[in-house]
Design a protein around this nucleic acid. Structure first.
Length: 438
RNA sequence: GUGCCUGUAGCUCAAUGGCAGAGCGCCUGACUGUGGAUCAGGAAGUUGUGGGUUCGAGCCCCAUCAGGCACCCCA
């Protein structure tokens, strides 16, 4: 017999966790749709070939298997490659620019750790088919709006551009090949510090002079305008970096015009981000309360979608890691913590009142009040106890006395108060409590 | 994938190589029209799993599974 346990890195999500997870997803969905994003769902299984050749070194983490028909299949690694496939496959049915969101699990055969699992849920947000800096700005604006709505204190979105890092590497005299080592090294800056980065750079064969120059540029700090001004002077001889800086300025103007509070973002020349397919703006959100790493990140990838479509389709997007958001929110005690989905518990006084109680429950539900019923009549004390244990706030009693008066007893188990009210008044009392709770 | 740490009741954790325990939770009752508090009682375990050493293993050794931390990488 199989052991009674989860497969490594795969988790169950019991009700207490699910209610917070759904709150997170509902919040993200609401904000996405508020910006006109449309939902998309794709299968968890893809042809292995679809995923291969898109991810670089990370391909070894793909879960691969063969089905009964001998097809080479894989569990999706992210929701970006499936988006690329869908975009190519249904190009005629989609209209661009296309704003789409997608929520679901992806799979990576990594060593699990806190905030990191082999099955993990992401909420993806992409604008397909636009190279406008306003598209970048909108994605970043949603990111800030979402983290603010979820209650993250002191989060900051770090912004950079791939061609700024590239320019830093080039003006330091490095070849394109050496630039890869630069990305990896400077991305660790906040973890290992300037000396650590210098050591890493030297290890990858970069001269001390170049390493020092890189470190100097990468540590430029200040307001977005100050940082971009300094970079534009330092990188004035690099055409691509100059274009990138102009692009970032346009993104910043968009953020300002969209009303994103200026303390929620910052230009960080050291931000690299691992995924190899990014081509333009990159960003990630950090919070001082989660030193383990970024909360989430994203960027512009103008070439990936086109791999399937056969033409360039510029795209910018981001992925919220639901598991990580959930872990951090638990740790920081953020978000609502309902214990159950029900607001009302209808007791069964005795066998004679069962039908009336069930009718009352139906009335409550029709009024939009989540209602759970007792399943065994009698012993009201035990039924109150069950309601209380479940975390249901209101217990309703319909005994012979109440029925005779056309009333119902409503007991607020949270406050310990109880009143006997006409049925209509009881229902509107609960409806009121429901609205307060929202 | 490499290294290190951990695994005992539902949860948090005790137990010199010598009878497996506590707190919380859960169930029953005191209380047949009222939950939480209190009191009394109860259920609960092949000590992650499989081997080994030993008169005797929760404890020591090996393997394996799972979790955590550091690399690596990323959400």
């Amino acid at each position: 017999m199989a052991p009674i346990q989860n497969v490594k890195g795969m988790r169950d999500h019991l009700p207490a966790d699910m209610m917070l997870r759904q709150y997170i997803v509902n919040t993200l969905t609401r904000i996405s749709e508020n910006h006109g994003f449309e939902p998309l769902q794709t299968p968890i299984i893809e042809y292995a070939e679809t995923l291969e050749g898109k991810l670089g070194d990370d391909e070894k983490l793909i879960y691969r298997f063969e089905d009964h028909g001998g097809r080479r299949l894989a569990l999706r690694y992210d929701q970006t490659v499936p988006l690329a496939r869908v975009t190519a496959q249904y190009a005629g049915q989609l209209s661009f620019p296309w704003r789409r969101y997608a929520y679901g699990p992806s799979y990576r055969g990594e060593r699990p750790a806190r905030g990191r699992y082999r099955e993990f849920y992401q909420f993806d947000l992409d604008i397909v088919g636009s190279s406008s800096p306003l598209a970048d700005a909108e994605i970043i604006a949603i990111l800030c709006e979402a983290l603010a709505a979820l209650g993250f204190p002191g989060f900051v979105t770090l912004l950079n551009h791939r061609q700024i890092i590239g320019g830093i590497a080039r003006v330091s005299g490095l070849s394109e090949e050496a630039a890869g080592g630069v990305y990896r090294a400077i991305d660790k800056f906040d973890k290992i510090g300037p000396d650590g980065v210098r050591t890493e750079l030297l290890k990858s064969g970069i001269t001390p002079a170049a390493a020092d120059h890189i470190l100097e540029l990468v540590q430029i700090d200040g307001t977005p305008d100050e940082v971009l001004h300094a970079l534009s002077q330092q990188l004035a001889n690099d055409e691509r970096a100059t274009v990138a800086i102009a692009n970032l300025r346009a993104v910043l103007a968009g953020l300002t015009a969209m009303g994103v509070p200026p303390d929620q973002y910052r230009i960080a020349p050291r931000l690299a981000r691992g995924l190899s397919y990014y081509t333009g703006v990159v960003f990630e959100a950090i919070t001082p309360h989660w030193p383990e790493g970024s909360l989430l990140g994203g960027g512009r990838y103008d070439d990936l979608i086109g791999l399937f479509a056969g033409r360039q389709i510029p795209t910018v997007g981001l992925a919220f890691g639901i598991d990580r958001l959930h872990d951090v929110m638990l740790e920081l005690n953020l978000g609502p913590r309902p214990r159950t989905t029900a607001l009302a518990f209808v007791t069964l006084f005795s066998v004679d009142q069962v039908a009336d109680s069930l009718a009352l429950a139906a009335e409550l539900r029709a009024a939009g009040i989540n209602t759970v019923i007792a399943l065994e009549p009698g012993n009201i004390g035990k039924q109150f106890k069950e309601a209380d244990r479940r975390g249901v706030r209101f217990a309703l009693v319909l005994g012979p006395d109440e029925l005779a008066r056309g009333e119902v007893v409503v007991k607020d188990l949270q406050r310990g108060e109880q009143r006997s009210l006409p049925r209509a008044a009881a229902i509107s009392l609960l409806a009121e409590a429901l609205n307060e709770g929202k």
